[in-house]
Design a protein around this nucleic acid. Sequence first.
DNA 1: TGAAACGCTATGGAAAGTATAGCATATGGT
DNA 2: ACCATATGCTATACTTTCCATAGCGTTTCA
Lengths: 112, 112
Amino acid sequence: MVRIPKPGQPVRGSRSGAPIMALFDLIGRRWAMGVLWTLSEIGPATFRDLQDKCETISPAVLNQRLKELQAAQLVHKVASGYEVTAIGREIYQDLVPLGSTAKRWARQLSDQ
Amino acid sequence: MVRIPKPGQPVRGSRSGAPIMALFDLIGRRWAMGVLWTLSEIGPATFRDLQDKCETISPAVLNQRLKELQAAQLVHKVASGYEVTAIGREIYQDLVPLGSTAKRWARQLSDQ
DNA sequence: TGAAACGCTATGGAAAGTATAGCATATGGT
DNA sequence: ACCATATGCTATACTTTCCATAGCGTTTCA
């Protein structure tokens, strides 16, 4: 039962399936960005590796997210486990700047 | 009951509250990025405006997301409704490149 | 050939999201 | 003043998702 939001079909935020909204629907699920981020940073990893790096993710959710990310072709399986695809890496790279913005956000919140 | 993930506290993906994971925890909730994106694009907007633009969001969830985004200081209230803050806009701008990547992703998916 | 590691799946309960109705207040026109 | 409409939500009942935890079947390797 792997249902993923597809551009061109109704998704959250867009009945017509605007690509950005389909993507938000996909990666805006609990843990989805965290998994993509972690997998991009550590490279090919086994299920257990990922589970450890994500610290508190449950195997059920990790498995679910991996299925979705594979169905959306952001992640695929290789001999040594899971790996981000080319397009998955592009999305990760788009997310990278959020890292430093998040730090500024954190500083701003703590300054009060 | 507005609970938001705060950097420095345990969040999904990081027991120590890494800023990026706190941010993912916050904006990786259903509709959160869609609301931030929409609000950034249309400028200050009323609750009903936002509801219309988001097409299928329920008022309960919109209200909940707005509370969270306000608590996290990505959004605030002004005379004419809701508006993104400076740091909220920075995060939105970090998300903008995802728009074109999403289109490439969509094309790739439809090419098979 | 047994022990450990691996990749999940099962389960039951808690939390989150959804659709829809509707309320209280503000606003506008007659 | 009166009524209609718009606004910003809240309430309710229901469905879906998430979560923690246990554990199963398979592979690896000493």
